[in-house]
Simulated assay, not measured.
Amino acid sequence: MRAELYHRSVVAVLILLLTVPVLATLLYSLSEHWGATILPDDLSLSWYLQLWQDSAFLAAFGRSLAVCLGTLLLATLIIVPAVFVVFYRFPGLDKLMNALILIPFAVPPVVTSVGLLNIYADGPLNITGTPWILVGCYFTIALPFMYRSLANSLASINVRDLMDAAHLLGASTPVAFLRVILPNLRKGLMASLFLAFSFLLGDFVFANLLAGSHYETLQVYLYNMRQTSGHFTSAIVMSYFLFTLFLTWLTARFSK
């Protein structure tokens, strides 16, 4: 009984620590004025109306969605067949791939950005300040999420036996992959896509250093608006948080 009470208390304190800052930000974004009083003077949706009527915010949000969706489309077209080839043809390469996918997390983002700027700032392939450099950079960030999730899905099924059975039934390797293997990867693929999308949407370092105001994304827009009203920036943060919460719900739904 005491152990159960202790566990419930720990969970309650943890939930309190996580929810209080979010609720405070939400309340601040809904308040017209909040001076020396404990609670705000009055509540309204004026900051949210002002935010969602701001063309700069809508453009930045659209750019973030375009870069993230383009990155995930490219990653799906490349990583899904690559993981299948590793598990079906070269299973010994899985250990090497597990080491390689850690490189994006081993190198600090600032160091990576400086290296990319030195390569692509001059010369025939000058793509700094464009969405293309963000797509290429974000691809390396999405790689660990997608590869590990797809690898776990493939490890739970016998790929070689399924492919051999499909071949005996007359299917070619591409057809067997599309109609037998790919449906078994659907849940893992969807979960990895939503997780990677949530992570990429919140990136600031790469977006600010590689593109900046030339291609203003959501996080760069939030940084540029830091000198405005705190109520307005709180509305931006809460809008981003609610959108990410919706993606998390979708991830949990597709992971079942």
Rank of each mutant, 00 (worst) to 15 (best):
R8I: 07
V10N: 08
V11D: 02
L14N: 06
V20W: 14
V22Q: 10
L27V: 15
L30P: 07
I38W: 12
P40C: 00
Q50D: 11
A56C: 08
A75V: 08
T76Y: 15
V80N: 10
F84C: 08
F87N: 02
R89D: 09
P91V: 06
M97E: 00
L102T: 03
I103L: 14
F105Q: 11
P108C: 03
P109L: 01
T112L: 07
V114R: 00
L117R: 01
G123M: 00
G129N: 09
G129V: 04
P131E: 04
C137V: 05
M146N: 10
S149Y: 12
S153V: 07
R160E: 15
M163T: 13
A165R: 15
A171I: 06
A171L: 15
T173E: 14
R179L: 10
I181T: 04
K187Y: 11
G188Y: 12
A196E: 03
A196K: 02
F204S: 01
N208R: 04
A211F: 03
Y215Q: 01
E216M: 15
T217M: 15
Q219M: 14
L222Y: 07
Y223Q: 03
N224H: 04
T233L: 09
T233K: 05
T233V: 13
V237A: 10
V237M: 14
Y240S: 06
F241W: 07
T244C: 09
W249P: 05
L250W: 05
A252T: 06
